[in-house]
Amino acid sequence: MAYALSDHVRVTAPPVAMKIVVAGGFAVGKTTFIGSISEIEPLRTEAEMTVESLGVDRGGQPGKTGTTVAMDFGRITLGADMVLYLFGTPGQDRFWFLWDELVRGAVGGVVLVDTRRVAECFAAVDYFEALGIPFVVAVNLFDGLATHHPRAVREALAVPANVPIVLCDARRKSHVQETLALLVESALRRAQKAAV
């Protein structure tokens, strides 16, 4: 919706904004991932977000409180009329899945995995699955070496067969690019199915 745009003033339409969320455990390389492909240095901002309090029965009304969290983001201009924003999940990563605002309207998510601490990304995987939004699992190659086979990671995370798993050195733009393309392909297939 355009606010306060008077009819007689002609303004070129702003580019279409698309959004991808980068999730994963603490220090797994999210900011590196974003920085490898962003046209700006990853920026950090603070946002107030509604956090559902933990430890509430599923059946009951979850309590909600506001909290301020820091998150990183980057921007990629794709031609004259599209901008892609990459948002890294904020602060206390194990609670990241509660921050719905970040995920609303996202094309999908990238779950970055450190194979030394696979368990830290369970929450992200569960959340994307529960929400039903497309995601890919990207195994970050910290030393540029594959220490785990993607199949082993798939088994460890119990990721469904339709979720792509890719090895990705977050420092390398081409790897990040490939990971994002894989995610968008997955989102596109789903959208095409839904459109039929």
Binding site: A2, K19, R104, A106, V107, Q192
Partner: peptide
């Protein structure tokens, strides 16, 4: 003025996703 991006609809729009994919590949 502010353009709110209709992201929720955009996220499942086949044409926009195709453009996004082409853009990332390029």
């Amino acid at each position: 003025w502010v353009d709110d991006p209709h992201s929720v609809e955009h996220a499942t729009d086949v044409r926009l996703l195709e453009r996004l994919l082409d853009g990332i590949r390029a």
